[in-house]
């Protein structure tokens, strides 16, 4: 039986006592899965990410990370198991160079000094940044800075990584690079990825989707299950993948097209359907 990397039960939190930002949220993330979280800005999804790392203090409820319940006392241990890559590439670059930035987390976790160089070089090369080890952040593009942030998180050997809109401030090239890198890192399924995102194509390719609306979990399931509810999703000001829109439009015209989330296979199917008969 697959274990859960993250288990959240009846989580509550608010910034302002009059408004519940997170309202009785429960969900679980299977170990080794690629889970995406969607919701419009202000729905509470980034707040959930911060709660998972104990960056915000929950009001009530349970958060279990890799089998360990998060409390005020074991924050450091929790943060040894779960890492996060934030949205703004500039504001999470702590060191003065790529090398120093990757070292920062190692310093905090008291990794022996003589092992640091090896670890830094290994993970810089993992994200393809070896030649920039001594570069300053101002000399790097947004995508490169995010790759460094990923290396810094990987260097701490977390089992779980949260990406909090990690590509939303990047240009299309940067987005493509980072999405490809995250996918590649997840390839051997040893890493659990939770990606908070607006990129609907990324969502379409993930294992599970959690839809957050007004501080609650509105929908949960595989992309196929979730995107079947086009009207509900659109009512929450969210988009559905292009192929789903096409399929639904064709259905309305009386054509029968299967549940297919891949654009290429969808095109083949449409052509066979139309041209064969």
């Amino acid at each position: 039986m697959a274990l859960n990397a993250i288990e959240v039960r009846n989580l509550n939190f608010s910034y302002d006592p009059r408004v519940k930002t997170i309202d009785g949220v429960s969900f679980s993330v299977p170990e080794g899965s690629y889970t995406t979280v969607i919701g419009h800005n202000g729905s509470g999804k980034s707040t959930i990410a911060k709660l998972l790392l104990g960056l915000l203090e929950k009001e009530s409820g349970e958060i279990i990370i890799d089998g360990l319940e998060l409390t005020l006392e074991n924050l450091r241990e929790i943060r040894g198991r779960i890492g996060i890559v934030f949205q703004n590439p500039d504001n999470q670059f702590i060191g003065s160079t790529v090398r120093d930035d990757i070292a920062f987390g190692l310093e905090n976790h008291c990794v022996p000094q003589n092992e640091m160089d090896g670890i830094i070089e290994k993970f810089a090369s993992r994200v393809n940044m070896s030649e920039f080890l001594n570069s300053e952040p101002t000399k790097l593009s947004g995508g490169q800075k995010q790759r460094v942030a990923i290396a810094a998180v990987l260097a701490m050997r977390h089992k779980i990584i949260v990406f909090d809109e990690a590509t939303s401030m990047l240009d299309p090239t940067g987005k493509r690079e980072i999405n490809a890198l995250i996918k590649e890192l997840h390839n051997d399924k040893k890493l659990t990825v939770i990606s908070i995102t607006h990129d609907i194509e990324e969502v379409a390719q993930s294992d599970n989707v959690i839809v957050v609306n007004k501080g609650k979990i509105a929908l949960e399931g595989t992309p196929k299950e979730v995107f079947r509810n086009q009207a509900l999703i659109e009512s929450m000001q969210l988009d559905i993948p292009f192929v789903y829109k096409v399929r639904n439009a064709l259905k309305k015209k009386g054509l029968k097209i299967s549940d297919e989330l891949d654009m290429e296979r969808m095109a083949e199917e449409v052509c066979q359907y139309v041209l064969k008969k």
Partner: peptide, 9 residues
């Protein structure tokens, strides 16, 4: 947040 998340106390 970034510093704390990376274990800085």
């Amino acid at each position: 947040d970034a510093m704390e998340a990376r274990g800085y106390v």
